[in-house]
């Protein structure tokens, strides 16, 4: 989502790096005080993007099942006072602590990850990743190729979605029943949708390859870029603030007893 906030203006490479660090530090938290600190920090970042908070809450719905599952599972682990027991299943105070902790942790992680995708254009993102993966070149990883594949994949997602829709309608108009029956039936009914989709994707890929060749593409050798990524003062500020926050988390971790 386009915007001009402080978070939007951070260089994609810095943003990816800082996000990774933030995710690591969300995991580093051992007690509620440090978790509260990092959650507050994340909340401030989220509000700074000036994209509605509702949008971020919506991003949670994709992993709602995972959050509930891990939350319930964690209830039964841990030690402490037994609050409820049924045969071998027992809920302890420690388990309740764990469940709350894990739920907050996963939710915050998901929401800050959305910050990256909401505030960075796909091209900046792939360019940033390409730059960050550069060291892997020494190991023989074809970094440019991976970035190009990602760019094309992102570009073709809406195209292929549209195509899927068209094929589904075409099959429905010939009497295909895609919507009734149990799961197995429905999966089976998708085969006549998937096969034309795969065939046409290959055709598209061939076409695209020719079009790219026509425009002198030869695998990134001697290729330059129109947009140059630059680290700016904004990135330095973001880095300093992040380091301060991460330091605070470590401090709280040491000072207060660990609960998890």
């Amino acid at each position: 989502m386009p915007g001009k906030s402080f978070i939007h203006r951070i260089d994609a490479r810095a943003k990816i790096f800082l996000l990774l660090m933030l995710l690591v530090f969300i995991f580093v938290c051992r007690n509620f005080v440090s978790l509260a600190a990092i959650s507050l920090f994340s909340l401030i970042i989220i509000l700074m993007t000036k994209i509605g908070f509702i949008k971020y809450l919506k991003s949670l719905k994709y992993i709602l099942a995972i959050i509930i599952f891990t939350g319930i599972l964690n209830l039964f682990y841990g030690s402490g006072d037994v609050l409820w027991q049924w045969q071998f299943l027992k809920i302890t105070s420690g388990g309740v602590n764990n469940a709350i902790f894990i739920t907050i942790r996963i939710s915050v992680m998901m929401m800050v990850s959305s910050v990256l995708t909401y505030t960075t254009s796909p091209t900046d993102l792939t360019d940033g990743l390409e730059w960050l993966m550069k060291p892997l070149k020494l190991l023989g990883v074809k970094v440019h190729d991976i970035a190009m594949v990602m760019t094309i994949a992102i570009r073709f997602i809406p195209v292929l979605l549209g195509e899927t829709d068209k094929i589904m309608n075409a099959q429905k108009s010939r009497g295909a029943d895609l919507e009734s029956g149990n799961v197995f039936r429905r999966v089976k009914a998708l085969v006549p949708v998937l096969i034309p989709l795969i065939v046409s994707s290959f055709k598209r890929a061939g076409d695209l390859a020719v079009a790219m060749e026509c425009r002198c593409y030869n695998g990134g050798n001697g290729r330059t870029r129109m947009k140059i990524m630059r680290f700016t003062f904004t990135d330095v500020i973001a880095l300093i603030i992040s380091v301060l926050i991460f330091g605070t988390v470590i401090y709280f971790n040491i000072v207060y007893p660990a609960v998890i």
């Binding site: 091209t123 094309i152 992102i154 695209l208 079009a211 330059t224 140059i228």
Partner: peptide, 28 residues
């Protein structure tokens, strides 16, 4: 070529237009 969808490489118009020039190795 015929199908415009299959010739556009990048996700933003100006970046796609730049694609050929980038391949030629021109300065930004």
């Amino acid at each position: 070529r015929q199908n415009p969808d299959n010739q556009i490489v990048a996700g933003i118009v100006e970046e796609d237009v730049a694609f050929g020039c980038e391949n030629l190795g021109l300065p930004p």
